[in-house]
Amino acid sequence: MSSRTELSAHDDQPAPTVTVLGLGPMGRALAAAFLAAGVRTTIWNRTPGREGALVEQGAIAAGSAEEAVAASALTVVCVVDYNASDAILRREPVVAALKGRTVANLSADIPERARETAEWAARHGIGYLDGAIMTPTTTIGTPAGVFLYSGPEHLHRAHRPVLDTLDGSHTHLGEDIGRAAAYDIALLDIFWTSMAGYAHALAVAKAEGVSARELAPFAQGISAILPALIEQSAEEIDNGSYPGDGNPITSSASSMAHIIHASEAHGIDAGVLRAAEGLARRAIGLGHSTDGFLRITEVLGRR
C-alpha cells in the first residue's frame, strides 16, 4: 500500500518525532522526507558539516549521538553498513540513552549481522527493527519508494505512522529479524549480476562496432522478458521442478559458449559467463539435461 501520511500535533497530542543518524545521501533524503511530512526531526552525523540544508528546512541538529537518540522514541539509522552503525550505537552513552526506545536500522548488511544486533539490543532493553530500502534516494518521499522491515510486529505497528510519512510502500516481512536483509541481499544480487551482464554486453557490442545507444532499445526488450519468467518460475522452483520445455539447459550452455568465444576473440574477460556456463555444464553432468537453466539454483548449493 502506498500513501503519504502527514502528521501534525493536536492540542492533546505531542508532535510526532524521529531521529535520523547518518547524513549520507540516503540519510539526508530520509530526513528531508520526514521534515516535509511535518515530523519533528533530530539529526546527527559522525562528520559535521552535512546538517546545513536540513536545519534550514527545520531539522534539529544534535550535538552528539546520545543527545540525538534521546530526542525521539524512534531512531532511524542509515549508514554504510553495520560496522558503521555499531560504532555509533554501541558506545555506552548512546546505549544508555536508547534504553526503552526503538532503533530502525536501514543500513545495508547481511542477515547474520541483523540477528546479532537484535540480540545486542534485547540485552540492553532497546527495541529493534531491521530494514532495507530497495529504491534510490530520488524515490524517498514519493510513491515510488520501497521499504522492507523485519522484527517484532508490535514495534513495527507502533512506529508505522511515522515510517509511513516517508511515502512509498512499506512491507513488514515477519518476526525473523534477518528477513529484510535476506530480501535485500537476494534482490541486490539480481540487480548487480544484471548490471554486470549489461556491462559485459556493452563491451562485446562496442568491440563489434555497436554503440550503447544503438543497443539500448533491444537491451530493454531483453530485460522486459524477465518479469514474466520470474513470475512463471516462482511456483515451479518452490515445488522443486525446473521444466526445460522449449529451452533446455543444454541450449543455454551452448548459447553461453558462443558469447564466451565472441568475447575472448576480442580479448574481453568472460569470467562471469564462464562461471555461469560451468554451472550449467555441471547440472547437465548430474543428469538434468532436459531441465531449464534455473536448475543451477540447486547446483549452486552442492559441494
Rank of each mutant, 00 (worst) to 15 (best):
T75F: 02
A73V: 03
I88F: 05
A97C: 09
L89A: 02
S72I: 04
L106Q: 11
A84S: 15
P93N: 13
L98K: 08
A108N: 15
G100A: 08
V103P: 02
R91T: 15
L98G: 10
D109P: 01
I110W: 09
A96M: 07
A97W: 03
P93V: 12
L89D: 05
R91A: 14
N83H: 14
R90A: 04
N83M: 12
N83E: 15
S72R: 05
D86N: 14
V79L: 14
A108Q: 13
D86H: 14
V79E: 09
D109Q: 02
Y82W: 10
I88S: 06
S107C: 07
D86I: 00
R101G: 07
D81P: 00
D86L: 00
I88H: 05
N105H: 10
C78D: 03
N83P: 00
A97Q: 02
I110D: 08
V79A: 10
V95E: 03
E92A: 15
V79Y: 07
R101C: 08
T75G: 06
R91M: 10
P93F: 11
L106D: 12
K99G: 04
S107T: 12
A104G: 06
A104P: 03
L89F: 03
S107D: 11
N105I: 08
A97E: 01
V94E: 05
T75C: 09
P111S: 14
Y82Q: 09
D109C: 04
R91C: 09
D109G: 12
D109Y: 01
A84F: 04
T102S: 13
V95A: 08
T75N: 05
N105V: 09
S107Q: 08
R90N: 02
D81K: 00
A97M: 06
I88M: 13
A97K: 04
V76K: 06
A84E: 07
S72H: 02
D81W: 00
V77T: 14
L74E: 03
R90G: 00
A96E: 15
V80H: 04
I110E: 11
A84K: 00
D109L: 00
A96Y: 00
R101Y: 10
V77W: 02
I110N: 05
A84N: 05
A104Q: 06
E92G: 06
N83T: 15
P93A: 12
